[in-house]
Design a protein around this nucleic acid. Sequence first.
DNA 1: CGAGTTTTTGAGGTGAGTCAACGCGTGTGG
DNA 2: CCACACGCGTTGACTCACCTCAAAAACTCG
Lengths: 238, 238
Amino acid sequence: MVAMARTSGQAANRFTVVSGIRASARPPARPKPAPSAEIGPLAAIASLASFAPGATILMEGDAADHLFRIVSGVVKVHRTLADGRCQITGFLFPGDFIGLAPEDVYLSSAVAVGPVTTSRFPRKKVEQLVEVSPLVARLLLRRTCSELIAAQDQMLLLGRKTASEKVASFLRLIAQRLQDEDITLPMTRVDIADYLGLTIETVSRTLTLMRADGVIQVDRAHIRIMRGAELDALAECA
Amino acid sequence: MVAMARTSGQAANRFTVVSGIRASARPPARPKPAPSAEIGPLAAIASLASFAPGATILMEGDAADHLFRIVSGVVKVHRTLADGRCQITGFLFPGDFIGLAPEDVYLSSAVAVGPVTTSRFPRKKVEQLVEVSPLVARLLLRRTCSELIAAQDQMLLLGRKTASEKVASFLRLIAQRLQDEDITLPMTRVDIADYLGLTIETVSRTLTLMRADGVIQVDRAHIRIMRGAELDALAECA
DNA sequence: CGAGTTTTTGAGGTGAGTCAACGCGTGTGG
DNA sequence: CCACACGCGTTGACTCACCTCAAAAACTCG
């Protein structure tokens, strides 16, 4: 499961986790593929909404008045226990929808991680559109399906993976979703821990170990990932 | 968290977990409420499919040719790691859909727990219907949404709850979904453990403790639940 | 009854949590 | 400009909830 410490030179630089927000001294990162195709008739009822880092976009229990779609930035969705224990059920990226609820109230809270811009759609009008436009219905269904799949992956992770596997899976997810050469992770250790069902100490220790094994590289407070050839090294990192 | 052992007479019979498959010697259980309202145009393309206990209804990676809807019985959906570690991502009950996939292949396996009967719909025709019938689209969207909510609850459970809390939540879920006075749980300890992210030993020990505390009652190999006045006792059972 | 499951129980180990201290970068105000 | 506080991350020592391994008990079924 280990036995590969200090294979430097070869292992190093596969995956670079740098920290610090200033994103300089790196190739400018290829432009992302358009976050998603068309939203069809939805465009007609959209308004823009922006959120500062840490701002709450919507809160568990509030009336579900709007549906949001992320234009830029990253959003965390979380659920909280009475005593404060928190589980982030997902990170959402540009193109993802926030606020789909089968009832009249939101069932999770959504918080901006870093600055976020969204399209906002009045729920009532969305429901009308679903009645009329198969395109919209299919779009929402497809998105919800994908989120369900992701949720199931996350359940496997939470229930059956070790701390190292959890962190490795997380890094791979981020690398997939933010397809740049050079990525700044805006989330803190607290977010990562709450996403993986770990404590911040365990996350920190695990990252330290990975760095020692040469699988990743870490710098400052926040995290930047430089994608190497194969992320798969992380998979075997067990 | 404890301090209530053997408050017998009062605590006992709140919640009875009896085991053994043969479901005799018990009042016959009132007929369930119709599992769900209408499935509208879907009815026209339905055929019936039955499965024996333990039968695989659909498998991860197979071509997603059909959509199923449970008529009777309980189904477990699970995802498996290469080394055999397994996570049950959900138990599905009458009225729930199985096999919704955004891609062309199923992403989880579904297995019958006990005998199961389903309606089966050809995927192609379902997709055509979604295009045409807002009713069908909305039905699927709503169902998928609900499943997503349940998945998020389960993530909170897997990531942040203790063994006792997990088992208590499980028992409450079952009591909610199978609304009889008298319920036989068909799933084994292995299923429960794989659903809660625990080992069978921990599940067994936890149930033993709950029985000792008078919160539940357990008999034979499989489990039957007799609903008492308040299931909430289980919640405080930490 | 006997073989094969499934569940329970016990003894012991360990991965991750808890508690606590420290380092480091950042902001603030004298 | 420095002193100080604060937020965030790292590291260490210790603990414990849950896992692992093992065996007995209970149940199912031929």
